[in-house]
């Protein structure tokens, strides 16, 4: 009762507030799910980077002696193809590993594009107000009104099916979220004293926008971006599944599932494993994003 409450004199003086990163880690660490998510993401990144080294076979080359081999623990499976092969004799494990590379690339590229364009549009809308703001925000409202996948499908139909176009389509669909966040943050920041001070000193519009206001709007954008990666991976896989995303033989998880549909009855592993990969990846990003939001949200602290 007494010993614990006495502050230890060594730790108290001249430490000052903890470094922002250390403080962030302190809050983030408390969320077990978020930490698990982070580990899975790190693992996926490692797998993606080493894809060429660790995958036992080529993800694309077919081998006509091993059609639809089951995983090694089932009768008929061999350790040479640990997770079995698909209908034209490609190693599932190697395809999944290369798929991780693709999915991470899709998630990050899509979100970078959406965040970049969204932040610029949001900053412009929040700064200039008036007609520009109305046009931008109306456009974003309309984009939000249409079901996300439908809009993405229409865009892919225009540009033609393919991985690049699917990524572009998903970026457009995600865009409104970032525009809204950036605009809301700008409007609340612009009224603050430091912006007025910068303006009085004579800072130009560009400087005010990007140097003064933007750094103070970053936290919500980061959180939304992390959660956006999971949406991007999921939507791109859905497009792949509908035959509008990555085209065969690209080892994209959604496309793999589209190819596997007709083998539901004969080969469960062809249908199950790519889906598990999508689910685990998306779940990891969602867990991580939730933890990030809690750790960065000042309202939830203490």
């Amino acid at each position: 009762m007494t010993a614990e409450t006495i502050p230890t004199p060594v730790a108290a003086p001249n430490t000052g507030p903890p470094h922002p990163l250390a403080e962030f880690w302190l809050y983030f660490r408390a969320n077990a799910g978020a930490v698990v998510g982070l580990f899975v993401i790190v693992g996926l990144v490692v797998v993606a980077l080493l894809a060429d080294v660790i995958s036992p076979h080529s993800p694309i080359i077919t081998n006509n002696t091993v059609f639809l081999k089951p995983p090694f623990w089932q009768a008929g499976g061999t350790l040479a193809y640990p997770l079995g092969t698909d209908a034209i004799g490609r190693d599932i494990l190697s395809r999944l590993i290369h798929g991780a590379r693709l999915s991470l690339l899709i998630g990050i590229a899509v979100v970078v594009l959406a965040v970049f364009a969204g932040t610029v549009l949001g900053l412009v809308a929040g700064f200039f107000r008036g007609m520009i703001e109305i046009v931008i925000m109306r456009l974003m409202d309309i984009t939000l009104t249409l079901p996300s996948l439908l809009l993405a499908i229409v865009i892919v139909a225009i540009l033609g099916p393919g991985l690049m176009n699917a990524m572009l389509a998903v970026s457009v669909v995600l865009l409104p979220h970032y525009v809204r966040i950036a605009r809301a943050a700008v409007i609340s920041e612009v009224a603050k004293d430091y912006v007025t001070a910068a303006r009085v000193i004579g800072a130009g519009r560009m400087r005010l926008m990007f140097k003064e206001v933007l750094p103070n709007c970053v936290a919500p954008l980061i959180v939304q971006a992390t959660l956006g990666i999971s949406t991007a991976i999921l939507d791109a896989a859905a497009l792949g599944f509908l035959g509008l995303g990555a085209q065969p033989p690209t080892p994209e998880w959604g496309t793999m599932l589209a190819d596997a549909r007709e083998f539901v009855v004969r080969a469960w592993w062809v249908v199950t494993l790519p889906g598990v990969a999508i689910l685990v990846t998306v779940l990891a990003f969602n867990l991580f994003g939730d933890g990030l939001r809690d750790a960065l949200d000042p309202k939830l602290k203490r």
């Binding site: 599944f241 599932l257 596997a260 790519p274 889906g275 689910l279 998306v282 779940l283 969602n286």
Partner: peptide, 12 residues
């Protein structure tokens, strides 16, 4: 459930 690719969930 929120992270579920529902097209795969259906197949499953």
């Amino acid at each position: 459930g929120y992270s579920m690719p529902i097209f795969w969930w259906g197949l499953l």
